[in-house]
Amino acid sequence: MGSSSGQRWAPGCRHVPNSATRGPAGSDLAAAAKEEEARAHDPTTIDEDGGMRIDAVDPRDLDLDTADELAELRRSCLVGVDVAAYTGPALLLDIVEGSGEPEDQVVLLAREDDRLVGWARATEPRREYTDSLFLQGCVAPDHQGRGVGRALLDALTAGTTRTRLRTRAWEGTPGRPALTAWGFTASHTSAVRRLDLDAPDPGWSSMRREADAAADGYELVRRVGPTPEADLQEMVVLREAINDAPDALEFESYPTDRIAAYEQALTRRRQTQYTVVARHRGTGEPAGLSMVCVDEFDPSTAHQEDTSVVRAHRGHRLGLLLKLDMIAWLRHERPEVTGVETWNDSTNHHMIAVNERLGMREVARSTVFKRER
């Protein structure tokens, strides 16, 4: 499959902290952001109409009512972007539980009187990307262009010494021109594709026969939930195979404790993990992996995590075989799952070709933006 065999996680999965591993409530990032918003925005307003306030919130203090507000505001900002939306409970657990990574995080809430009109979150990874601050947020459509987004950005960046800012914007949304105006530069673009599991069979049966013949020397193993301890070492090989994907930023190591922490976090977030592993029959070597998660708060759409094939085992249609087996499994075991969403870097031509052959269609595009400080 060459260097384009990997398919990276959907953005946001990695860059949120676990409450047990992130910095304390008084961490430098949170404390500095609170100090900055207090200094800059209390009692000063950031909107000429008055009544605007930005508050820094420890993620562990978020409740379901606030998470419902965040999710609803996010949905209002993504009208016309055809991707699965967060529910309030899923977003709350995403923020509070995260992905098991040692990271520091702060959330800012912008309110006009009692109404939430904007929010943002910033994360400082402590394992990799230690020069970077990852940003996410949105502003209510009727408050865009009034300085809310810029005020949130300023408050977040005032609380960090990180020199590189990273964020994303959806194609067709005001976020793209706003980021450009704030000095960000577009980097790489990913396309979101969706597979309709209820659609007429586009030839999966014949594809499966083809892939089975090409991968005759391999066996597939299915697993629901976290990886058993005895199998974690092979997951190291399979997860690190993703590092030659086109959108790899820097090498990401996956020791067994990191994999276990991530998968345990998925369980706490009520994300059911479905994994298919390919092993070489002759040697028992791990050769390939496909993994999806089903959000039990809204199980209609499954979300592709990794699909990867180890370089030494490429050329046997394993990527196609793994995905076909996952499709058959979900259709049989989870009939309420009617679609699968996956992300591909726009230069990942091999995996794009596999996905489109399976019947996936592009539904949205998201671009990474960066700014040096």
Rank of each mutant, 00 (worst) to 15 (best):
E263F: 09
S19R: 09
D142L: 02
H332R: 15
D345G: 14
R60G: 13
D244S: 15
G159F: 04
W182C: 03
A364D: 09
Q271A: 07
P299L: 08
E252P: 00
S5L: 03
T267E: 14
G118A: 10
L322D: 05
L91W: 13
D295I: 12
R127E: 07
V224K: 13
D55Q: 08
T227P: 13
L249Y: 05
S308G: 08
A122Y: 12
R334S: 06
V368T: 15
R126N: 08
A20G: 05
D47H: 13
S3L: 11
L197V: 14
D295N: 14
D47C: 09
T272L: 11
A215F: 08
V354S: 05
A25Q: 03
Q136V: 05
M360L: 14
D28A: 13
R373E: 11
A31I: 00
D104Q: 05
D49C: 01
R126V: 00
T283L: 06
A181Y: 04
L330K: 08
A186G: 13
S366F: 01
V277E: 01
L358M: 07
R126S: 07
V81A: 06
R208F: 10
R361V: 14
L93Y: 08
D306Q: 10
R361K: 10
I242C: 06
L91Y: 09
L195R: 06
G147Y: 03
R194G: 06
W170T: 02
R258M: 09
N18C: 10
P226N: 05
T307F: 04
L153H: 13
G2I: 04
D325P: 05
S5P: 01
T167F: 12
L318H: 06
R166W: 00
D212Q: 08
G217S: 11
L70I: 11
T301D: 01
G26E: 05
K34F: 10
H280T: 04
L153W: 12
V309K: 03
E124V: 13
D131C: 05
E112K: 12
A33D: 02
N348S: 03
V83K: 02
T45K: 03
E296Y: 11
K323N: 14
D104Y: 02
G172N: 06
D55C: 06
V106Q: 03
G172H: 07
T301Q: 04
T66L: 14
E210Q: 12
P226G: 03
A186L: 07
M351V: 15
E336I: 08
L179Y: 12
T342F: 01
P228N: 12
V148F: 12
H280L: 07
R22L: 03
A85T: 04
T130W: 02
C13N: 02
A287S: 08
T367M: 06
T185L: 03
S300F: 03
P286T: 06
G315I: 14
M360W: 04
T87L: 04
A31V: 01
